[in-house]
Design a protein around this nucleic acid. Sequence first.
DNA 1: GTTTAAATCAAACGTTTGTTTAATTTTGCT
DNA 2: AGCAAAATTAAACAAACGTTTGATTTAAAC
Lengths: 210, 210
Amino acid sequence: MEEYSEKQLSILKVAERLFADQGFHGTSVRDIAQEADVNIAMISYYFGSKDKLLETIFKYRMEASRKFINELLENDTMEPLEKINSLIDRFVNKMLGEQYFQCIMSREQLNSQQSPIRDLIWQLKGEMLGLMRPIVTQAQEAGIFYKDVDVEMLMTTLFGTIHQVIPAQHILRSSSGATDLNDDEYREFLKNRVSTHLKKLFKAILKHEF
Amino acid sequence: MEEYSEKQLSILKVAERLFADQGFHGTSVRDIAQEADVNIAMISYYFGSKDKLLETIFKYRMEASRKFINELLENDTMEPLEKINSLIDRFVNKMLGEQYFQCIMSREQLNSQQSPIRDLIWQLKGEMLGLMRPIVTQAQEAGIFYKDVDVEMLMTTLFGTIHQVIPAQHILRSSSGATDLNDDEYREFLKNRVSTHLKKLFKAILKHEF
DNA sequence: GTTTAAATCAAACGTTTGTTTAATTTTGCT
DNA sequence: AGCAAAATTAAACAAACGTTTGATTTAAAC
């Protein structure tokens, strides 16, 4: 992956936020140029087109996700439930740390017509499933986890819960007595809340205890 | 809610599908008019504007959801876990039975700027939470359910899982040996799979057993 | 200092957008 | 049949869209 100048990075950052907040088609290149404080022509000049700009964002974030997955593959000394817990912690931390991009993913994965981006998304999800499945199945064969667990659905629950938390967080905030925290503090609070919930959920269904 | 003519219903149906598949801004009124086989002007003539068309779809579906909630309120003879299971069954059946609309909801709930539609969505989710919370808390006080369960997060998991299943179903299909079913059969198969998974999950975390 | 390439800009390009107009056809009523 | 309202149409509308142009400024190399 090439390096990007400050100006290019500023465009990427603004575009990511606006695509997340208003959708790809709901955001004009003029909006992006204005908020990033650059001339409209610079977007085509740097990235080729609006479509390629989105693709660039995806490649940028996806590369990081690939690294992330590979790092997860390397802790082999833990026992199954620890692995699962570590995996949940890292997933939640990662995804709630790049909420704008996760918003874009939520939107793009809904598009029905085939596109390189859509393919990338499901390929990545497949890799994450490939990360989790062997942990579960090996523990099942060792008699540590219960057998009748639908691993694909469990993964769907993991992604789905986190993706649902992102737009719901403002509602969740007012109902959880965390109104006196600033934004960064609340984000950490939320990460912990989601993580705790998912770990309980996984432990309960995999081992029937807390 | 007024009645709609066949032509109006055909526009609503086509628009719902296209909005779900391509997003609101990704769908032009010309696309809708062409697929519904009506003149472009009829959309403004009937619904006022493209925005109001989306609003009409929402009001139409939301009214049904309200009815749905009120029906759920009426089974009072079951015990808590039965209530939860019935609730899950009905939710899954309802939401997977109107997938196009759920797609639109998934998209619209991501919009950051306030809108009447956004408000409607979260109001409805609040009502569904209000449906589930008393069941859980009453069962907790009666000592039937475990206490340290985050009900809001559990509801988020319920919605999130179903919303995640909708775009993921093509992937889930190939990995579950259900390739020989036709579309309607697979939909029923999927409903059952999701429902079963969620009921196990809820039972496990609420009662620590299957 | 001159030259060459990259970066930046305002302006214009041709489409496509959602909406409206004004004329015409269809419908329902007496 | 005759009339008024509703439905339908092709055409036109201005605005916004993504992209490109061509001129100008900045930067780097020699």
